[in-house]
Design a protein around this nucleic acid. Structure first.
Lengths: 197, 197, 197, 197
DNA sequence: GATGAATGAGTTTTCATTCAT
DNA sequence: AATGAATGAAAACTCATTCAT
């Protein structure tokens, strides 16, 4: 008995997700050129050929993931305000990204640091400006925090930018198992914006 | 009349340096797989074939650069004490790496985050433990700083580790020209260890 | 609908055989370095890339063929006894190798005479000692032949060795079409061991 | 004090001989494609570049050696008659080639069995027909030997051809050190033409 | 005459993408 | 929809040949 359209659609959606998840995992760590399609296929437990039913090319899969990453980042920033607590407590939440969030960060990092990515990816990243998505979003929060005396004084926009740069940098470190790097605790990172031990 | 041995050696040294410098520049930014030999050859203004007079393979060139990077890092750490000024001032110097230093950092980062590098490189990095090269080297400096009240209190070894992690992370960001990331000024980074604005 | 495992296995076996047969034909005549992969690919009527689905490298393909050649030689020697007729008649059979057998001989010859073959191939050949595979196998046959007066007297082991050397040498001549060399008839070769016209 | 023309000529002749000798040694064993110019240069203890003062190309060096080899073979055959003793004793002498002679044999063999040699070499070999150089030369000797009862009866030209084929084959075996092959003694080989133990 | 660094054409090898089933 | 064999273009690597000294 053949599957009906609905069931087929469900299979398609599942497969697509499988591939995207696998792609994120591998691309984030190894970059576009460092990733072979066979790796993604293996990770997603499907055949290499099937990838091409869902994505026209390696580049297209990569770009789709970039789009997801940017969307994710946007949401994350927009949700900061909805978090409970004082400005500082909200920021502390930001510092504690989940695993998937970290992978998205790494992916964006790959685009920023490699020249081998498709032009489209570059453009997407450019158009997502930290200015709009991050600084504008967090400015009010920082000003509020400074007024409360929770955050260090100084130009809030610059402070956000630096803080976010450090955060991004740490995300992309992909703290390895060998313990060479020690991920600082949230409070230590927050010192950059609080200026207090 | 053929060149004498001294002249030849000079040519060889120059050429080798040229290649190493070009390799560092390209590998640091693009990683091992993202780098094509033609890029290095172009950057070094030599033919692709000549690369193989000086290095047996792409991998060997890469490994040689890793060795240099580790040596450089080692020296850098050992020289901190010789810098003038208080412990904090010495640290400030550390934060202001030169361009080449940053490239070496990025190269080491490439090895840590990619699985595509030769086994030998992995081993080298492993054997260079942050424990020995960095933490042991800086421990006394931090204790001294804490006694002087310049540095925040707490386990000095852990503090160093976190500080160095942030430093490494920033180095590897390869602050791009598009201004997406803003590299924090030295004092801002130092807040992590001073806990003061 | 994808092919089932059995069909796939059949395709793989066929293709592998195709490649091995083509490799034997070209390697035997031209040696390892004299053979370009494009020649084998053309001879096997497949693309160059496909070779790498079946063999990791040119060397691996070569080594696989050497293993086959040695196995073939071993079988050949072990089968001599099962042939019908007197010792001399059995030997006459040995002298009339088939075409594939000759190619295998030539291949082994390539390893013996070239230094450019992979170490593994050298070891395989070494481990296959003529002593064990040939002389030990044929000794009883020769002694029997001498007792019957069919074969010349003298140290049978040495006689075998010389006989086999001549046989090998002739095999590897690859009697060319231009008629420069004339392959002696079986009886002429057998004179070496019979000592009779 | 600059060298005079005579001294220069002497140097030139020496160098040329050096190169030819080295080329013969390496080409004979490894064939044209299996031989790198660097091998010959090393063997001749000169630089790679110098080769091109004496020979226009690798091919030209190879062809020159083929010409020498053919000349040598021709002389060898013509000298058989001048050797002392009965026909059989003259033949026995032929069987005991010197080392250089063997190398020339191997070189000719390389041309016969490889397709990668320059067209010119092929032509040279073709033009040197075994018919003329060998069979015609030895026919009278064989007939004489048959009349004396030293040599087996039958078509002398065919007998020569077979005998020479076996001889060539053995020459090209390049009996390796591992003792896999045992070069038969002269008398054993001569059995082919005498038909007697 | 002599050297060895330098080049580039040709070969091996990799891998995204296509295709028959 | 799904598979994995097959292809070919591009990358790594080799080596005969050239060239500045």
């Amino acid at each position: 008995m053949p599957l009906n359209e609905e069931q087929l659609q469900q299979i398609r959606d599942e497969r697509r997700d499988q591939i995207l998840k696998a792609g994120l995992k591998v691309f984030a760590r190894r970059g576009l050129v460092g990733t072979k399609l066979s790796m993604i296929a293996t990770e997603a437990r499907i055949s290499q050929g099937l990838l091409y039913h869902y994505f026209k090319s390696k580049d297209e899969l990569f770009i789709t993931l970039i789009e997801q990453a940017l969307q994710e980042l946007k949401n994350e920033m927009q949700n900061v305000y909805k978090l409970p607590g004082s400005p500082l407590e909200k920021l502390r939440n930001l510092v504690q990204f989940d695993d998937e969030g970290q992978l998205y960060f790494m992916l964006i990092h790959q685009v920023r640091t490699s020249d081998e990515v498709p032009e489209k990816a570059k453009e997407l990243i450019k158009q997502y400006s930290m200015e709009t998505y991050v600084i504008d979003q967090l400015e009010l929060l920082f000003i509020e925090g400074q007024e409360l005396g929770e955050l260090a004084s100084g130009d809030p926009r610059k402070l956000i930018s630096c803080f976010f740069t450090v955060l991004s940098a740490l995300m992309t470190l992909n703290i390895s198992e060998d313990g060479a790097y020690q991920m600082p605790e949230a409070d230590l990172i927050l010192r950059i914006v609080t200026g207090r031990p």
